[in-house]
């Protein structure tokens, strides 16, 4: 399955077969967001869909066609019948492209780009408006929101051009993104979250009314380290150097730290109503998109 899902060349993020499979899916948004154009998502606005929303008093200038005559017959007062507007949803896929994402086989960044491509395609296929952002250092490079399946190719090409570099500064880069984005929507952050201040960045998004989903990508080596001996570990981003001697105790302690780290993100998400999905670069990609994300309620 994996062979069919993932393209043989790194440049091709997703295969046409896989794209066909995920066409039927759609991203789940728990909250209603106002859109720009008519779409298939329920909006906060009142409009002309078939779904009843509310009544309000008639005021001068209102369209007579919307007056509920049954209510007028009973109450002899004019009430307008309001319907839910259906508009498009703004989906922002934010990919962490710091140097730490370069690690792993396949690299975490490639895995993240494939997830981003898949989610973007799902959104585009559902007439949602998809915006992309690459978080490197303190800033974020963005791709302006696109709509419609025809924009998928452009999105893929843009994702392919993403290269790792810089330090993970989620607090700064997410704040930067939230400030630059005027239309809130669904923000999917794909990162390894190796930044102690990631919560500040997420808070910035939440404060701007984004619905935040996190996809935590880890290298299998980071989950179960296989390194041995007396080592000098060098941080790929900060060049921080740390002397360690691998012992059973240290490995156990590392596992505890990792569990605490992941548990911290998960509890933050639970507290603020964010989706949280943790995957490793060894997780089967098709299972992740078609199965795991579905079960976690990110797609349906």
């Amino acid at each position: 399955m994996e062979q069919q899902t993932l393209p043989t060349r790194e440049e091709d993020l997703l295969t046409p077969d896989f794209l066909r499979k995920i066409e039927r899916l759609s991203l789940v948004s728990k909250r209603l967001f106002p859109g720009k154009l008519r779409g298939e998502r329920r909006s906060t606005k009142r409009g002309s869909s078939v779904e009843f929303a509310d009544y309000r008093n008639y005021s001068t200038g209102d369209d007579f066609r919307r007056v509920d005559w049954n209510v007028y017959a009973r109450l002899e007062k004019l009430f307008l019948k309001l319907f839910v507007e259906e508009e498009d949803l703004h989906v922002y896929v934010l990919v962490d492209a710091s140097r730490s994402m370069e690690f792993g086989n396949p690299a975490k960044l490639l895995y993240a780009r494939r997830i981003a491509a898949a989610l973007s395609y799902i959104a585009l296929a559902n007439l949602d408006r998809v915006g992309l952002a690459v978080l490197t250092g303190a800033s974020s490079a963005t791709l302006s929101p696109k709509r419609g399946k025809q924009a998928a190719l452009g999105v893929f090409e843009w994702l392919k051009s993403v290269e790792a570099g810089g330090e993970t500064q989620l607090a700064a880069s997410l704040r930067d993104f939230s400030l630059r984005t005027s239309q809130p929507g669904l923000a999917i952050v794909i990162s390894d979250f190796f930044d102690p201040d990631y919560q500040k960045g997420l808070s910035a998004l939440l404060s701007r009314k984004f619905e935040v989903s996190l996809i935590h990508v880890l290298d299998q080596e980071e989950v179960t380290p296989t390194i041995v001996g007396d080592l000098l570990l060098v941080d790929s981003e900060t060049s921080d150097r740390r002397e360690i001697t691998i012992t059973q105790t240290l490995l156990r302690r590392y596992q505890q730290c990792l569990a605490e780290f992941c548990g911290g993100i998960e509890s933050y998400c639970a507290r603020y109503g964010c989706n949280y999905v943790r995957v490793t670069n060894q997780s089967p990609f098709e299972d992740l998109v078609l199965g795991y994300l579905r079960r976690r309620g990110m797609v349906k």
């Binding site: 792993g104 190796f194 000098l232 570990l233 060098v234 790929s236 105790t249 302690r253 505890q256 780290f261």
Partner: peptide, 22 residues
Amino acid sequence: KLRRKERVVSSTMLWRDAVADI
């Protein structure tokens, strides 16, 4: 001083915590 093998990792954040803990 032990001559240690240098190894670049994605992040030393977790290792730092683990070593500090021990």
